[in-house]
Design a protein around this nucleic acid. Structure first.
Length: 301
DNA sequence: GTCCAGGGTGAAA
DNA sequence: TTTCACCCTGGA
């Protein structure tokens, strides 16, 4: 049913951002691809306000379905959308990497998001041993339970494990409860994690039951701006083995430490590009194949 | 319809 | 250090 009281506000973000590969390729599970015909549009929420982001050549057209936002909304949204690699000091090092360099040239508009850490934590706990469509479905359902506003830790506890299981979270349900408890008991503060170095933030996150190294690294990289985090999932692991000479049976923690040492503060970008290369390689679409990217090559070429 | 595997983790061998 | 169960569902 169409909501006749729906208010639309439109503004543009005058920057090149590759929406599809930034919002809808594993960093976030909060965006739905609602593209039709030639238009690339993603629907999602920022600060619990419903948005449409439409991919234009050199900018993003933002439609806000609310009147309830302030003058700094746009700049906070820009911060959420992160920075392109070429705005990171010393990024040229990655151009010298034979594996990463061609992917950078293909996807210069790929960014690292700065999501809300609480939402990211729930999202990545949910991602464990699941797949993209299902994770997104769960995240959407969870948001809908609380009327379009993403549930706070207290809402999660109010829901309880049984209701989470009914929503389909399965064995991840108690993990989500535990995350909420740890936040409410003030044993973990995301504001604090943002300020401390990677290692300390990592150890704090590992206290959440159901958060291991991979999920912690995702939270650190994609919501807490820890650019020296390098999440290793099965795809990235096989990429590292295939392209960087790691032994066949390397475990993910060793691989992550190896990559962090190699890429330093460019780790999260390096990881995304290796992930994309592996993702495309596995679909045999990399060179010359059809793919969805409306990124415009500006000053990286 | 049935079968399998999916961006992992924690506990038990 | 290695193996296994854990929930559930999209896609073959």
């Amino acid at each position: 049913m169409k909501n006749i009281t729906e208010i639309k506000n439109i503004f543009n973000i005058e920057e090149t951002i590759d929406l599809a590969n930034t919002l809808d390729a594993g960093q976030s599970f909060m965006w739905q691809d609602i593209s039709k015909r030639e238009k690339i549009i993603f629907e999602g929420y920022f600060e619990d306000i419903k948005l449409h982001l439409e991919q234009k050549l050199n900018y993003i057209c933002v439609t806000v379905f609310s009147d309830n936002y302030d003058g700094n909304f746009s700049s906070r949204l820009q911060k959420y959308l992160g920075k392109p690699l070429n705005k990171i000091q010393g990024f040229e090092v990655l151009l010298k990497d034979k594996i990463i360099s061609p992917v950078i040239k293909k996807y210069p508009g790929l960014r690292i998001l700065r999501q809300d850490p609480w939402e990211a934590t729930i999202g990545f706990i949910t991602s464990s041993c699941s797949n993209l469509p299902r994770i997104k479905k769960h995240m959407t359902q969870l948001r809908n339970v609380t009327g379009g506003i993403f549930p706070k830790p207290e809402d999660i506890l109010y829901l309880g494990e049984d209701d989470l299981r009914k929503l389909g979270f399965g064995f991840r349900s108690p993990y989500i409860i535990n995350a909420a408890e740890i936040i409410l008991n003030e044993n973990l503060s995301f504001d604090h994690l943002e300020k401390v170095p990677y290692e300390i933030a990592l150890n704090d996150l590992l206290n959440i039951h159901g958060v291991g190294r991979k999920i912690a690294d995702c939270i650190l990289a994609y919501s807490l701006d820890k650019k020296d985090s390098f999440p290793v999932d099965r795809h990235v692991l096989s990429g590292l083995i295939k392209w960087y000479g790691l032994p066949k049976k390397t475990n993910p923690v060793f691989a992550s430490n190896f990559a962090r040492k190699k890429f330093g503060y460019l780790s999260s970008y390096a990881q995304q590009y290796i992930f994309h290369r592996q993702r495309l390689a596995s679909r045999a679409l990399l060179w010359g194949g059809k793919h969805r990217s409306f990124a415009i090559d500006n000053d990286i070429s």
